[in-house]
Amino acid sequence: MANDNAAEGQSGPFDPTTASRQEIMATFLANDLEDGEILQIGAAMPVGEVAVRLAHFSHGPNMELIFIGARMNAAHLDVLPTPEFGWDRRTVRWAESYSDTGHRFDRVKDWHRRVFFVGGVQVDPYGNTNLIGVGDDHRRLRFRGPGSVGTSTLATLVGRYHIVLNSHTARTFVPRCDFVSAYGWGQGGADARTKLGLPGGGPKYCVTPLGVMDFAPDTKRMRLRSRHPGVSVEEIQANTGFDLDVGREVPTTPLPTPAQLEIIRTRADRRGALRH
């Protein structure tokens, strides 16, 4: 007991070493988000949702948060309600405006200020992602995915995006996606996007429960940027279906500060979605 109290005296109830992997993922993403940016959050993306709330509450009072169709600024609120759907009335009541899906595409001029998160059933070394399915024959897939949602268009147009995956396995990280629903860096090379005339900035980070990957500036091939505490480089490589570029020293992903963890647990993720 005495030791516990001493630890509490040092960092309070929000001891960074108690952060879950998903809380570490959300914190890493939040640290990348800048005030004034427009954050598009899709359904079933708890890490991304908490990341944007954390950023909004900690350093982004001018961010615009778009949960599916509901656009809000909640910097003045103690707690941002956790939407189950962005079109749910209980979420829209916090919004300043609402757009149905079709009209969202009527103005993409400011989408370079937009950031969003892409999931996938597969990702390849160049950050191309697949929500279509797994198999050789599109008419008889071994695994039928949910479909591309809006990711093909968002990945084409937004200023940057992050690939966020709930699992990191050799089945997910494949040398080549069976199908590509969101074009990342194609076959690689710094001009992979500009040569197709894609205005968006492409994927910046790939964040998983094991670590953080980014893309080499010249080749745009995925490399290991950091490993989460307690995860070894060997474990990450063993769970990746292609050779990751690994530097001589791979740092650990930074933990949230006690202040960040307090925001996560008391305001951004009160339901504890990232702790289970």
Binding site: S148, S152, T153, L154, L198
Partner: peptide, 13 residues
């Protein structure tokens, strides 16, 4: 015309 999806597998499948 639409730009979203250029480079993806959508036109192939």
């Amino acid at each position: 015309p639409w730009r979203g999806g250029v480079g993806t597998s959508l036109p192939e499948v």
